[in-house]
């Protein structure tokens, strides 16, 4: 491979002169070639237009539009589930629905008492 790549610098220089001239001697596409290429491009593009499926012209009623806007069937499922849970809680009136609120009030009352007591304790120690 290395033997393959050996070159003669003098010959390279002379060749480079030929290459340089060749790079400037680039052919310009004729008007006929450009028009043939443009015609092929137009024909190919016309085929693309036929291949692209046209979206059907849909006119939706206001409720169908609303249904689609809120998220369609998955959103409707979520809303139905929430409504069912609400009805269930309303009828059954489970204990946790009332006791949970009562427990929170107790905690808040304890906190208030604790702070008041702590203030008294400090006052007694300082006094």
């Amino acid at each position: 491979m290395t033997d393959d790549l050996k070159t003669n610098p003098e010959a390279d220089l002379e060749l480079e002169g030929f290459f340089q001239q060749a790079r400037q001697d680039t052919p310009v596409p004729s008007a006929d070639l450009l028009s043939r290429i443009a015609s092929d491009a137009a024909m190919t593009q016309a085929k693309f237009a036929k291949e692209i499926p046209q979206a059907p012209d849909r006119r939706m009623s206001w409720w169908a539009q609303f249904f689609e806007d809120i998220g369609g069937l998955p959103a409707l499922g979520g809303l139905t589930a929430c409504a069912c849970v609400g009805v269930y809680l309303g009828f059954v009136n489970p204990e946790f629905a009332t006791t949970w609120a009562g427990w929170q009030e107790d905690v808040e009352a304890d906190g208030v008492m604790s702070h008041a007591l702590l203030g008294d304790v400090y006052w007694i120690e300082e006094g």
Binding site: T26, P27, P29, A38, A41, Q45, F48
Partner: peptide, 27 residues
């Protein structure tokens, strides 16, 4: 752009690429 139907893109590509291709093919 050409694939989306822009004909000016075809013209620009032709002017840009065809001289390169022609030079190589002629050599």
């Amino acid at each position: 752009l050409f694939a989306n139907g822009d004909s000016a893109a075809a013209e620009a590509l032709t002017l840009r690429l065809s001289p390169l291709a022609l030079s190589f093919a002629r050599r």
